[in-house]
């Protein structure tokens, strides 16, 4: 691994560090790297960078590396890290902020991260269209996008026999309201970008 030029990364990415601190509302400089977040993280085993390293990368302004990481997407938002952090840093919020940033910056995602982001998209698309989640639509769409046409088909069948699946979405009366929420959020975020 080549040496990281810290003067350059802190010069170039100082805005990034400030942005993460501000948007997540978390004092990232407070972290003293004790690793209690990593120690208790249920997903750390599957991550490319353990949680404390994600925060370290933010502290040092290693923007590209952290935004391209699998770890920020694998975070399951369980907040175990947050509840045990001795420095009162809400790492789950930082992860949230990094995911949002990665999307807005159009970072290309791979492997697990890509699948997770795609799932989130499929989920939210049905919400955007119907005001509520439409599970079957979401699953079919996800399978289509990930080109695994029969993934979870057995689940679907089992769900069907227990009348746990609905073929048609339950549409919200004012789904225009919800669509407006999506539109206005996009509008605001493009303005601040």
């Amino acid at each position: 691994m080549p040496a990281i030029n810290l003067t350059a990364s802190l010069n170039d990415n100082f805005d990034f560090i400030m942005h993460v601190s501000k948007e997540s509302g978390q004092p990232v400089e407070q972290c003293y790297q004790c690793g209690k977040c990593t120690a208790g993280c249920p997903i750390a085993f599957a991550m490319d960078f353990s949680p404390h390293r994600v925060l370290r990368m933010v502290q040092l302004g290693l923007k590209e590396r952290v935004l391209q990481s699998q770890a920020i997407w694998l975070c399951a938002c369980c907040s175990t890290c947050t509840s045990r952090c001795p420095r009162n840093v809400d790492l789950a919020q930082v992860m949230d902020c990094l995911r949002g940033l990665a999307r807005r910056e159009g970072i290309p995602l791979e492997d697990r991260a890509r699948d997770i982001a795609m799932f989130y998209d499929c989920f939210l698309n049905t919400v955007k269209d119907n005001g509520k989640l439409y599970e079957l639509g979401m699953m079919l769409n996800y399978n289509l996008k990930t080109r695994q046409f029969f993934k979870n088909a057995d689940t679907g069948l089992a769900m069907f026999t227990r009348s746990k699946i609905k073929f048609l979405p339950a549409k919200n009366k004012n789904h225009r309201d919800v669509r407006q929420i999506f539109q206005r959020v996009k509008e605001l975020e493009e303005k601040t970008k």
């Binding site: 949230d96 998209d121 989920f123």
Partner: peptide, 12 residues
């Protein structure tokens, strides 16, 4: 309407 769940706050 849907609360957004994890996909919601994870996206924005």
């Amino acid at each position: 309407n849907c609360c957004g769940s994890t996909p919601g706050h994870s996206t924005s």
